[in-house]
Design a protein around this nucleic acid. Sequence first.
RNA 1: GCGCACAUGAUCUAGUGGUUAUGAUACGAGGUUCCCAACCUCGUUACCCGAGUUCGAGUCUCGGUGUGCGCACCA
Length: 565
Amino acid sequence: MVEPQASVERLERLTGMLRRRGIILPAFEIHGGAKGLYDFGPVGGRLRSKVQSVWRDHWLSQGDVVEISCPTVTPFAVLEASGHVAEFSDFMTVCTACDEASRADTLLEAHHANPDALSLSDLQALLDDVQPPCPACGEASWSPVAAENLMFDTVIGAGSSGRAAFLRPETAQGMFTTYPAIYRHFRERLPFGAMQLGRGYRNEISPRQGMIRLREFNMAELEYFIDPETEAPHDLSPWASTEVQLVPAEGDAFAASIPTALAQGVILHPTVAWFMARTHDLMLALGVDAEKLRFRQHARDEMAHYALDCWDVELHGSYGWIECVGIAHRGCYDLEAHEKATGQRLRAWRNYPEPKVVEINGWTIDGAKAGPAFRALAGQVKSKVEALGPEASFPLTVVLDGGEEVLVEEEHVKRVQRTETVAGEWFIPHVVEPAFGIDRIIWHLLDHAYEESGSGEEMYVRMRLHPDVAPVDAAVLPLFEKEGMDTMASEVHRRLCGTRGVLASYDGSGSIGRRYARADEIGVPCCLTVDHTSLEDGTVTWRDRDTGEQTRMSVDDAVRRLAAP
RNA sequence: GCGCACAUGAUCUAGUGGUUAUGAUACGAGGUUCCCAACCUCGUUACCCGAGUUCGAGUCUCGGUGUGCGCACCA
């Protein structure tokens, strides 16, 4: 994508300002820097935490969502169960003629139905066998296949007793591995959600585009557990008149309300629609420009194989349209995978409308006799016997799965004949997951808010950040640092900083205009100026960042306005 | 990972092997100023890292690191 020169220059001025003012900086710069790692600086730190607060409050307000926090260091087995060990590994091989690196499975696509699923040794064997030509130079001479895992690996514990582990590539697994506690917390009633804000790690081969592709990043994910057989109760009527841009997997982009798109069958599931609508609200509450937001549906072949529907929120900025949120219906994939790997029950209970009466009529073993007789095979004998109908008669020769034949005598078995009432069943909940890339969202908030006016030497910069995410809430400025104005301004500053949820800065140097400009550049929503009148009657002027308008008010009123929730 | 280009104060930048390395902005101290980057004086800060060539390297060579772009990759 070739961006016009003007927008490249704007991007350079923006990133330069973000560094200079301590919002976003390359990490470890004094040591030469490190690719794909960024710091939020003295101003950016609070920007991030305010964005996270808005995110947290938005979802908690739903009432059926809890916040958890899980370790980033994650045992091998967890990510093996989730499929990440397999999914995050690419098997690479390098052409010895031209040094072009290729994925071994891609080279072998014509020779195997699903080379992605092959193990390293199978891939190596097939590669040696097929000798595919290099797509770059045509030679067929490949280095040994090597796994490139995109997860950072580490070891829990020292020496030979250490356990293999990874830094998590996503926070989601924590919501699945703590599912039993969440289910208990919600008194065993669906639907409910769990979410966490935290760091994720991906050892990207080639991080690019500033904040867009990072090796360590802030993410925020919510897993919403639902009963696939219960109709979703979401009320989408508040969004009926809000049009959004939609790019469906099939056909052209169009604008429609989310309930309409659901009714048309473009959005495939009501809970996905619900989270799209709620996410849209959240994005606007954070200050995203509605014109630079669209929903894009994943094509079939782009979705993970288990996903039932997936929509990204893409935001438009200096790097084009960038995926910032993914809203995916993941079916029962994750809980089922962990259940299989651990044998733990990760299910919910559903009562039948009417209890079912089940006739049990057949045979089982008499443990006291059959146990000693069959010893290690007793378990297998039991399941074979219980599979027999009531008409079976003993002695009877039973063939076990291993091929062994055992003679089951009449004394080994007992007749079973009873009726049972079954009130319901265990099932694996489905899950809808909105996953947010916090850094990418923050980038776009800055990109959308950054406004230049004038040009050249005259250029004026204003960050029109939403007050809920602005890193500094107010700047306190003495008109001059003398005659007691500085003392009074310091008092106002201290009082504001002592007010919960308020952070103010004090700036007494340079002309008043210069100080307004400094505040505007990092998006401080208002400046409170202490002037001569202030000394007489205890008022200050409140200057609005976006309009430049000034209002005189008492210090008490100013504090109250800033402290308002 | 490959290829091309680039790397000089906080930011942007001048500098074709030879004095004390430009300039602007920003920042700090003081002055001035009754509200939008004004002005005056003074001040602080830089050649990405490491080897090499050379009497001498910011400048040339090699390697590393970082940044941008293209290819590849991107749960």
